[in-house]
Amino acid sequence: MDNGIRVTIRSDMDIVTAREQGRALAEKIGFSQVERTVIATAISEIARNIVEHAQEGEVLLDHCQHGAKRGIQITARDKGPGIPDVARAMQDEYSTGKGLGLGLPGSKRLMDEFEIQSEKGQGTTVTMRKWMPL
């Protein structure tokens, strides 16, 4: 974990910046074009959750390593209202916003690892990783 990239998320334009930065980092790490697109799509979904539900937050992009495995780690965090029912938010087609309700469960499917921490009134942190095929 060294000098990661931080993208402040305040508007829909920042969503585009975050996914472009994520795609560039994924390319640097060595991910294939399909994997880069998958990673950029997941970033787009979780960054939009910030704009829609918390108005402001940040996306952190970094390398990650576990033994011989190398990958990309994406953290999205905000100090928004939090998700009252995380289990429910992880279900397909459950939405409280303007989306299709696929953002969280869909991003989980796109990535290899997905963790979400949320507390009412305290905000939400989503951490997800994708590993390079060995």
């Binding site: 399909v34 697109t37 998958v38 799509t41 979904e45 397909d92 869909g106």
Partner: peptide
């Protein structure tokens, strides 16, 4: 093709 792949995985 890679966009189609990601869309299917996302469930779109």
């Amino acid at each position: 093709p890679e966009v189609a792949f990601a869309m299917v995985q996302l469930g779109l």
